[in-house]
Design a protein around this nucleic acid. Structure first.
Lengths: 221, 221
DNA sequence: GATAGTTTCATACAATTGTTTGAAATGCAA
DNA sequence: TTGCATTTCAAACAATTGTATGAAACTATC
């Protein structure tokens, strides 16, 4: 019977350290010290540092995607096959925002690890990351069904911007807090999600398709 | 007479390498090889690797801030002391977007270096970065003057989201290109700027102050 | 309770890193 | 030229890194 006690202790410690300090300055010795296991255990159980990171990433990546897709399916079911655009966007940005900003410690580490992974693109992760495109494509398709009149380009930009806002809010919540001197409540996760969704919906619908015009008008200046 | 030939060769090579590959995996030996100078030259001219990075960052940081403030001042002058909100946002996101996505090679390296710096937060940079808050505060003040009716919280979020969209577009333009299968033209820098500005303006004005309502309405669901 | 397979451990290894050193080369003033 | 300061260079240094090794400890089966 394989002892996965050591194995999971390493995974947990590694994820927490990577989430906190990034891949750049976390050594295997840091990890085994935090996990209270022997240095050689990492190579014994995972083969190499890169494979450890890869395993962490694929596990969390699958979990996040599953969570997002569940919300999407639920929204589509509730809407009789066609989800509302705000529900789609909520399914896209909700899980990550809740995971990173919410109070749940365990989820928080997982989500912050994923943010790190999306920022500091280390080789073992870069190789896997292409699958994310396929995942996002499902959301693009749902958006196309929800807003059949919008151009594909507008939809892609809307999707891109929604992720951008959610992402940056997690990555740089500290700056926003400092800049606003605490006026922006970063503990109100639900409020943040709705703010991101609201802006994204506006970007996509633009008060009845004004976005394209607005872009055009501003460009003409 | 000090020989700044070596000095500037190091600076140029370091900036290019850091911009291309990030701080994580660029060694001093990579830099001196690219600059075609001796290894010891870095420590002789800069003292340490950290001080080299810091010098690069402060130089570029000052330049970017100056550029942004120039555009802001010009916009405020043109508007008789009060700039339009879209002009303010354009001054905020324009320089970086033009720098990173534009064709100008030299500016491109500089801008991409700054993006790296804002992502991979290495110690020497982290220490300096607090000044950025003061810089952003000037834009927040201009926005307050331009939209005196909006709440401060909304303005901060709008500023935050504008930077988020610009930032992510630079950092992850590749994903957007892949996702949209080339439909989103990332060479049309002016168009991208206007798109970011348009969405930010909508987020801030929300079709005559609908943002807050919309957030409220969505939250009520 | 002996044995085979698995897991842990201390230790060592090879490679890479930023930094230092002291001598050689260079530039420039007298 | 001589003398002095600045700059370059090859070499070495100390520290850290991921990885490998072989013996010890453990676990479960017979």
């Amino acid at each position: 019977m394989p002892s996965d006690q050591t194995r999971s202790a390493i995974l947990a410690a590694a994820e927490r350290l990577y989430a906190d300090r990034g891949f750049g300055d976390v050594t295997l010795r840091d990890i085994v010290a935090a996990a209270d296991v022997n240095l050689a255990a990492v190579n014994y159980h995972f083969g190499s540092k890169g494979e450890l990171i890869a395993e962490l990433f694929v596990t969390r990546s699958l979990a996040t995607n599953r969570e997002r897709l569940n919300e999407l399916k639920a929204a589509e079911f509730a809407g009789g096959g066609r989800a509302s655009i705000d529900a789609i966007l909520r399914a896209l940005v909700g899980p990550t925002l809740r995971g990173c900003l919410g109070p749940d410690r365990e989820r928080s580490t997982a989500a912050r690890f994923m943010i790190r992974a999306s920022i500091e693109s280390v080789p073992p992760i870069r190789r896997i990351k292409n699958r994310e495109i396929d995942h996002l494509r499902k959301f693009a398709a749902a958006m196309r069904r929800s807003l059949p009149d919008r151009s594909a380009v507008d939809l892609y930009w809307g999707l891109h911007f929604a992720l951008a806002m959610a992402h940056q809010t997690i990555r740089d919540s500290e700056r926003l807090a400092k800049l606003s001197e605490g006026m922006c409540d970063l503990n109100d996760v639900a409020g943040i999600i709705e703010r991101v969704v609201a802006v994204s919906v506006m970007a996509l619908t633009g008060g009845e398709s004004k976005t394209a015009e607005k872009v055009g008008a501003l460009r003409a200046r």
